[in-house]
């Protein structure tokens, strides 16, 4: 989709949809939304729908950053403690390495 060929109200619609979709535990959609509409929200000359788009972009960005932090913490905790968790660690793993704890 080429944003430059869309009308402003269509863009707002699209941005809102992406924002809502992100609530379905899809942080990557929020990240895409934030990047994709960044120029529309901050770089372009003002237009009617811009404040709303700006709001969605900011919220999406915050959401995706929060998610990244949570996931990063989990990855670190899991990698550090997987072995000591024993059975739980194994059950939470999809692929268990051979020959190493």
């Amino acid at each position: 989709m080429d944003l430059s060929k869309m009308s402003n109200d269509k863009k707002l619609d699209l941005c809102r949809h992406y924002f809502k979709a992100g609530f379905a535990l899809l942080p990557f959609v929020w990240a895409v939304n934030a990047v994709w509409f960044f120029n529309e929200a901050f770089k372009r000359d003002q237009y009617d729908e811009q404040p709303q788009i700006k709001r969605y972009v900011i919220y999406s960005a915050i959401g995706s950053i929060l998610w990244s932090i949570i996931i990063a913490i989990w990855i670190i905790v899991f990698q550090v403690y997987r072995v000591s968790w024993g059975a739980i660690g194994d059950n939470l793993s999809f692929i268990i390495p051979f020959g190493t704890p």
Binding site: G86, A87, D90, F94, I95, I96, F98, G99, T100, P101
Partner: peptide, 27 residues
């Protein structure tokens, strides 16, 4: 002479048991 199993018997038996990911290898 690479060994697949590690740690102790309960761990290697658990890892050898069929699991949800269909990727079981007897260690």
């Amino acid at each position: 002479f690479f060994m697949y199993a590690v740690i102790d018997t309960p761990t290697c038996l658990r890892r050898s048991a069929p699991r949800f990911n269909f990727n079981t290898h007897k260690v």
